[in-house]
């Protein structure tokens, strides 16, 4: 069977799990959870990183020497201008030319500002970044981001850290239908059922941090999420049955009747 791989900006990926490095109770648990997740892409806030010597950073030192693709994010930015500035800093430090655009203007909901996100995406694409914007789950907006040159588009399931799950599965499925770049559900997932649902809707991957890091057993949860992604993906590829209103026997007697 052909390996189920996918690509972002020419980079081949096997895992469909992007994991955030924040909020873990300790570096030991963080390390074990990341390992158990099977993730190839790690994401973190650039503002939390010591860019002057990234190899000494309090978070990155614990994943040193392993071959992760870094996806730094611009969280904390409230305008396109700020996000662009942060992205340039990250690239200049040699971390990565992948950038997750994350622009929120409201400290309570942290919901993405769609206009500023589009603006920042246009600028960063022109500057040669591999841009993955985190955005609201609006199908038209997601299409616009793709047209602006985003390498993947990352609609939120729900506000960051809420664990509310996919608030609008209909929108997510429309976004997937229309997309020519990978769609990654980012933010708001809470449980394995949310994750499996996202994958069944046909997204290419999911990005999570809080539901793993804040679980009672983050290592166990990382594994559970990995399996949910696999199960959801396989279900999507295998094609679920259509829903029917009434029962139809699964033990079908007719074919057993001897004529």
């Amino acid at each position: 069977m052909k390996k189920d791989v996918w690509h972002i900006g020419g980079h081949e990926l096997t895992s469909r799990f992007f994991i955030g490095t924040g909020l873990f109770p300790s570096p030991y648990v963080q390390k074990e959870a990341i390992r158990e997740s099977g993730a190839e892409v790690l994401t973190f806030a650039i503002r939390r990183i010591n860019l002057a010597s990234t190899e000494d950073d309090s978070i990155l030192q614990h994943v040193e020497g392993e071959s992760f693709q870094y996806l730094p994010n611009t969280s904390g930015a409230s305008t396109a201008e700020e996000a662009v500035r942060i992205a340039r800093l990250a690239r200049a430090s040699g971390l990565s030319d992948w950038i997750k655009v994350e622009i929120s203007a409201n400290e309570r909901t942290l919901l993405p500002d769609p206009l500023e996100t589009l603006k920042a995406t246009e600028i960063l694409v022109k500057e040669g970044f591999t841009v993955l914007p985190y955005t609201s789950d609006d199908p038209i907006l997601c299409k616009r981001l793709e047209e602006a040159g985003a390498a993947a588009v990352m609609p939120g399931a729900a506000p960051i850290g809420t664990g509310l799950g996919i608030l609008n599965p209909y929108n997510i499925s429309l976004i997937v239908e229309e997309a020519k770049v990978p769609i990654i559900v980012d933010a708001g997932l809470g449980s394995v059922s949310d994750v499996a649902q996202a994958m069944e809707l046909g997204v290419s991957g999911v990005l999570m941090n809080t539901p793993v890091a804040k679980a009672k057993d983050p290592v166990g949860m990382a594994r559970a999420m990995r399996l949910a992604i696999e199960a959801g993906r396989l279900s999507y590829l295998s094609g679920r049955i259509s829903k029917k209103r009434y029962a139809s026997a699964s033990s079908g007697h007719e074919q057993f009747i001897v004529k």
Partner: peptide, 12 residues
Amino acid sequence: AYHEADRLALEG
């Protein structure tokens, strides 16, 4: 905080 971007987090 060293980044403008930290203001949102500090404020929160």
